[in-house]
Deep mutational scan, measured.
Amino acid sequence: MTSCHIAEEHIQKVAIFGGTHGNELTGVFLVKHWLENGAEIQRTGLEVKPFITNPRAVKKCTRYIDCDLNRIFDLENLGKKMSEDLPYEVRRAQEINHLFGPKDSEDSYDIIFDLHNTTSNMGCTLILEDSRNNFLIQMFHYIKTSLAPLPCYVYLIEHPSLKYATTRSIAKYPVGIEVGPQPQGVLRADILDQMRKMIKHALDFIHHFNEGKEFPPCAIEVYKIIEKVDYPRDENGEIAAIIHPNLQDQDWKPLHPGDPMFLTLDGKTIPLGGDCTVYPVFVNEAAYYEKKEAFAKTTKLTLNAKSIRCCLH
């Protein structure tokens, strides 16, 4: 018999989150649709729960009410004593943790798909938090293969000092899905179709896995975050240069030392320094102006996964 890495157990509980950011409308629209008619997301033997994560922000069509829901799922915020004085999103995070967690427990949901849009030209993107997770690498390989020839990129946010504390991190297997470009507060049919297909293929993978299909060893190309880059700023902290036209919409493309990065209003080009080629992502993302992030630098690498098969009882 072929030796293989056996994944822990079959997958039982899956959640699909929309509206973690209330103005990213593809996930909101799909989740609302699936709450009314969820036939397309159901798979035999699998509990799939669509869920609106930040209903107040969705109602106002804004990213958040008090603070970013997708950055506060750490033990400090989840452990705060519940009171009306807490920011709305912290209270909501505790409610979500109660419903789908608790985080880092045996009772937490197996998989959470968190649906997002970006204003950046990132196409279909899967966000991975753990480079050693054979199950998710296999799932992402399946999704990428199923979507081809449509490109699907994998963004690895594993980093020693950049801690995200994402909404989906309460699950055993957290999956971020990011599709763009799409303006905030807008629905685009092409973007919706791409996100819908990503979810379909992900659920198909889980179904095949649960039925005992063995997935042979595989490898995927990923883009691992190195650092986030702020806009150049003046002495008052105001933005002093904008994304250069040569960099705009060039997510995932190589940016070499000396290539144009920013452009000042008086026409001066600010190039990339250093001696390493990087791959920019979230270029000129609207939501990241407040976070002082013009783009993120990534490096390209390959992740390998062992063969996996479900432990059938």
Rank of each mutant, 00 (worst) to 15 (best):
T2R: 14
S3F: 07
C4R: 14
H5A: 14
I6H: 15
A7L: 13
E8F: 10
E9C: 08
I11S: 00
I11N: 00
K13R: 12
K13E: 01
V14N: 02
A15H: 00
I16A: 04
F17N: 00
F17Y: 06
G18P: 03
G18M: 05
G19D: 01
G19E: 02
T20K: 05
H21W: 04
G22S: 09
G22Y: 07
T26L: 03
T26N: 04
V28M: 13
V28D: 03
V28I: 13
F29V: 12
L30K: 05
V31E: 04
V31Y: 06
K32V: 01
H33K: 15
W34V: 03
E36C: 08
E36I: 07
N37K: 08
N37E: 10
N37C: 09
G38C: 11
A39C: 11
E40T: 04
Q42I: 07
Q42D: 09
G45K: 07
G45F: 01
L46G: 02
L46Q: 04
E47I: 11
V48K: 03
I52R: 00
I52F: 03
T53G: 13
T53K: 01
T53V: 12
N54E: 00
N54R: 02
P55I: 09
R56P: 11
R56L: 13
A57P: 01
K59Y: 09
K59Q: 13
K59C: 09
K59E: 13
K60Y: 11
K60T: 12
T62F: 09
R63L: 01
Y64L: 10
I65A: 08
D66L: 00
C67G: 08
C67M: 13
D68G: 07
L69N: 06
L69V: 07
N70F: 06
I72A: 14
I72Q: 14
I72W: 10
F73N: 10
D74F: 09
L75G: 13
E76P: 12
G79V: 13
G79Q: 14
K80L: 14
K81V: 14
M82S: 14
M82E: 14
M82V: 13
M82A: 14
D85E: 13
L86R: 10
L86T: 13
P87C: 11
P87L: 10
Y88P: 06
E89G: 04
V90A: 11
V90S: 09
R92V: 11
R92S: 07
R92F: 04
Q94L: 13
E95D: 11
I96W: 05
H98M: 14
H98C: 13
G101P: 07
G101Y: 05
S105I: 10
S105G: 14
E106G: 13
D107Y: 12
S108F: 09
Y109L: 00
D110P: 00
I112K: 02
I112A: 11
D114Q: 02
L115A: 04
H116T: 01
N117M: 02
S120F: 05
S120G: 00
G123K: 07
G123I: 05
C124G: 05
T125S: 09
I127R: 15
L128G: 06
D130Q: 02
R132Q: 15
N133M: 01
N133Y: 02
N134D: 15
N134P: 12
F135I: 00
F135P: 04
L136F: 06
M139D: 06
M139E: 05
I143D: 00
I143P: 03
T145F: 06
S146T: 08
L147H: 00
Y153V: 00
Y153S: 10
Y153R: 15
V154F: 02
V154D: 02
I157F: 10
E158Q: 07
H159V: 08
H159E: 15
K163G: 12
K163P: 13
A165F: 10
A165W: 09
T167A: 14
I170D: 01
I170L: 13
A171G: 09
Y173E: 02
P174E: 10
P174C: 15
P174M: 14
E178F: 15
E178G: 15
P181F: 06
Q182P: 02
P183Y: 02
Q184K: 09
L187P: 12
I191T: 00
I191F: 06
L192R: 02
Q194W: 12
M195W: 04
R196A: 02
R196F: 04
K197C: 11
K197E: 10
M198A: 14
I199N: 04
I199K: 05
K200F: 09
K200C: 11
L203P: 04
L203R: 06
L203M: 09
D204I: 02
D204R: 05
D204A: 04
N210R: 09
E211D: 12
K213P: 01
K213R: 14
E214L: 12
C218N: 02
A219M: 10
I220T: 04
I220H: 03
E221C: 02
E221Y: 04
V222E: 03
Y223H: 11
I226C: 08
V229F: 01
Y231A: 02
P232H: 00
P232I: 00
P232M: 02
D234Q: 08
N236S: 11
N236L: 08
G237E: 06
E238S: 09
E238L: 07
E238M: 08
I239Q: 09
A241K: 00
H244I: 05
P245G: 02
P245N: 01
P245K: 00
N246V: 07
N246W: 07
L247P: 03
L247I: 09
L247Q: 01
Q248S: 06
D249P: 04
Q250I: 06
D251E: 04
D251S: 00
D251A: 03
W252I: 03
W252T: 08
K253E: 08
H256G: 08
P257H: 01
P257K: 00
P257V: 07
G258S: 09
M261D: 00
L263A: 07
K268E: 12
T269V: 14
T269F: 03
L272C: 12
G274L: 02
D275L: 06
D275C: 08
Y279T: 00
Y279Q: 00
P280F: 03
P280V: 04
N284I: 04
A286D: 03
Y288E: 14
Y289K: 14
Y289D: 15
K291W: 05
K292L: 07
K297A: 14
K297I: 15
T298P: 01
T298V: 01
N304F: 14
C311K: 15
H313I: 15
